[in-house]
């Protein structure tokens, strides 16, 4: 029995940053990269199912899409207890939107035939919260988004999940499996990997595939395979503070000026 956990290497911004020349993203030099926080919880959820059922032969597969840099998030997933890791990349994947990404994940899902796909509810950098649900749509599987509780026994025909609704309501759903769910922060307490498991993870081979090898044409991936495009990314103009300088008399004069400007 397999569980696939798609994971993402996300960017976080320095306090000060500059935009890329084309104005469509942040200059990567100003970013720090790490495993998406939501994915920490989906990895933990998968590993907990495996550990609760030691004889069920559960295999947790971490999957990511990205160039070689993205290996680090797969290593993290392996260190936390994933058994196998797959990375998909070819240059033509550059510019893929979340649906194109979902198309790739769906191909891996079709290939591996897992009982569960556990995605993070969203990525902390782009926050579309679409990829997981798009995968479910592409493979026509039952799905639930933003779940706060997961109860699944390997071999069972269904999983019990809970979602938190407005006003403190809880919705409990029974999903037929195989299914796709996206996982909310706080569903569990993600573990820290020990040095031993980090060392073992660093020694494990990673499966690296192209989208082409998964049977996807260039028209289905990258910019041609994406129906949305980033036109511009920008920090909105903020009101700026002004340091009033000079002698006390000059400062008072400037202050008066500002008050007058504001009043008019």
């Amino acid at each position: 029995m397999k569980i696939i956990v798609p994971v993402k290497r996300v960017a976080s911004l320095d306090d000060e940053f500059e935009m890329r020349e084309d104005g469509r993203d942040v200059e990567p030099d100003f970013c720090e990269f790490d495993l998406n926080e939501f994915d920490e919880y989906s990895i933990e959820a998968a590993v907990q199912i495996k550990e609760a059922n030691p004889d069920a032969g559960v295999e947790v597969i971490a999957l990511t899409i990205g160039p070689e840099d993205a290996d680090e998030v797969l290593r993290k997933a392996l260190a936390k207890g994933a058994d196998r890791a797959i990375r998909i990349w070819q240059d033509a994947l550059e510019g893929s939107d979340q649906i194109a990404i979902a198309r790739i994940i769906a191909k891996v899902v079709e290939r591996e035939q897992p009982s569960l796909v556990l995605c993070g509810a969203q990525s902390s950098d782009h926050a579309h919260a679409e990829t997981g649900m798009a995968v479910a749509g592409l493979v026509h599987w039952p799905h639930a988004a933003v779940i706060t509780h997961l109860d699944y026994r390997p071999g069972a025909q269904s999983a019990l999940v809970e979602r938190e609704l407005e006003g403190g309501l809880v919705e409990r759903l029974e999903l037929e499996t195989p299914a796709v769910v996206t996982i909310q922060l706080g569903i569990n307490k993600p573990r820290y990997a020990s040095l031993r498991s980090i060392k073992q993870a660093n020694a494990k081979p990673l499966d690296v595939l192209t989208a082409e090898e998964l049977g996807l044409s260039e028209a289905e991936i990258g910019v041609p395979g994406s129906l949305s495009r980033v036109r511009r990314m920008f920090p909105p103009d903020r009101r700026r503070s002004e340091m009033i300088e000079g002698t006390p008399a000059q400062q008072a004069a400037r202050l008066l000026e500002i008050i007058k400007e504001t009043l008019h």
């Binding site: 720090e32 680090e72 307490k189 040095l195 498991s197």
Partner: peptide
């Protein structure tokens, strides 16, 4: 941030002797 395999693990269960022996 500059040390990929290093970790700050807060809020974890107090480590036992066995945990430390097996930590790697």
């Amino acid at each position: 941030k500059k040390s990929r395999d290093s970790r700050l693990a807060l809020g974890s269960k107090p480590l036992t002797v066995d945990d430390v022996l097996q930590y790697g």
